[in-house]
Simulated scan of single mutants.
Amino acid sequence: MIEKLKSIKEKFHEVEASIYQPDIINDIKIYSALNKEYKKLSKIVALYDSYELILNNIKEAKEVLNNEKEEEFRELAKQELTVALEKKTEMEEALRNALIPNDPNDSRNIVLEIRAGIGGDEAAIFTGDLFRMYKRFAEKMKWDFSVVDTLEGTAGGCKEIICTITGEDVYGHMKYESGVHRVQRVPATETQGRIHTSAASVVVLLEAGDVEVKLDLNDVRKDTFCSSGPGGQSVNTTYSAIRLTHIPTGLVVSCQDGKSQIKNYEKALKVLRSRLYDMEVKKQQEAIGMERKSMVKSGNRGDKIRTYNFPQGRATDHRIGYTEHNLNAILDGAILDMIEALRIADNAQKLQTGEI
């Protein structure tokens, strides 16, 4: 591990020297790539520097114990050695996690789909709550969040909502959110004060590019229709909404978010490509038997991954048994700590199973 860290530190200094060269600064594409690598390496180098400092403290404490006769100094050295050895163990664990290679897909953008499950009107309201939670989380992460299509619930919320999220390491954070989310609370529609259990499914799809999906537009039927719902005077008067049907698979994607038919078409096409890409990836994984059965990243639509319990004010992720008692903050987008706990558990599993 030490040799690898030394190599990373050398690479860091090379990148640091290159990034301020005038020809690099003037090339936005190269500068952006180097700057991204610089940020990534700087975190590991900072950990390594702290680790080297701890090793030096251990060495000095041991020298005092070997050479010092005065009992008072020896006692201080013993205390410092005990603390330094504990920190050394912690730092080694942190460095092992930092050296775990990222999933190459972590930096990619996503299509997010949220659908109401069991629970009727309450499930639709909960779907709306999850939509707001992810929207607020995206704002905190400084990501771009765009709605593609919504199907509103009869008593509020949404029966279905599709969005795109773009930004830094979007998939790396959001990949843990796929699965069934469950809520336990007294619905606004409940007259007897009984606690109900409702659910919504979350699907996180990698945003696919033109290269990854060979989509023949001759296989896609395009229909236009009038938008419905909020939108001002143009609603129900202009055919700006788009419905795309992929004839070979039967996949249907709609977009009526904007007033521009062209922009709605581009958004719908993006979602269609992502769904086709997801289907292709799953076929490949099944064919070569490489799909990892991870408790953390299972993300199947039938997997109950998290419960939001209002009477107890808690949110529990069932994959790792992680609970937070700040439900209101979580539903306001404060889910980074939970996602970080899932990431750490996922990395620990990878190390244990020898995947990395």
Results as ranks from 00 to 15, higher is better:
Gly232Ala: 04
Tyr20Glu: 09
Asp23Lys: 15
Glu75Pro: 06
Arg306Asn: 05
Ala287Pro: 00
Arg275Trp: 02
Tyr277Pro: 10
Ala345Cys: 08
Asp223Phe: 11
Ala345Arg: 01
Asp129Cys: 13
Asp103Ala: 13
Ile8Val: 15
Ile2Thr: 12
Met279Ser: 12
Ser274Lys: 02
Ser240Phe: 05
Ala116Gln: 05
Met174Cys: 15
Leu151Gly: 10
Asn300Leu: 13
Ala208Thr: 02
Lys282Phe: 05
Val111Gln: 04
Lys140Glu: 13
Arg292His: 11
His246Lys: 04
Lys78His: 02
Arg132Ile: 10
Glu160Asn: 08
Lys62Met: 11
Glu75Ile: 14
Glu152Met: 02
His173Cys: 08
Asn105Tyr: 10
Tyr38Gly: 06
Lys142Ser: 12
Thr316Cys: 09
Asn97Trp: 04
Ala155Gly: 00
Leu95Ile: 01
Ile247Trp: 00
Ser294Ala: 06
Glu324Gly: 04
Val213Trp: 01
Glu70Pro: 02
Lys214Tyr: 03
Leu269Gly: 09
Leu151Met: 10
Thr197Ser: 12
Thr164Asp: 04
Asn97Thr: 11
Pro104Ser: 14
Lys142Asp: 12
Lys36Asn: 12
His325Leu: 07
Leu76Asn: 10
Lys9Val: 06
Val220His: 01
Ile54Ser: 02
Ile320Lys: 02
Gln284Asp: 08
Asp27Arg: 07
Lys43Cys: 01
Ser107Thr: 14
Lys4Leu: 14
Glu113Trp: 01
Arg132Glu: 14
His325Tyr: 13
Met338Ala: 09
Lys4Cys: 10
Ala241Asp: 11
Lys40Gly: 07
Ser240Gly: 01
Cys158Pro: 00
Glu340Trp: 00
Gln285Tyr: 06
Glu177Trp: 03
Lys350Gly: 03
Thr197Val: 12
Gln79Asp: 13
Ile110Leu: 08
Glu355Asn: 04
Ser294His: 05
Gln349Phe: 03
Asn300Thr: 13
Leu53Asn: 15
Val186Lys: 02
Glu10Ala: 15
Ala329Trp: 08
Asp216Pro: 05
Thr353Gly: 01
Leu151Phe: 07
Asp223Trp: 06
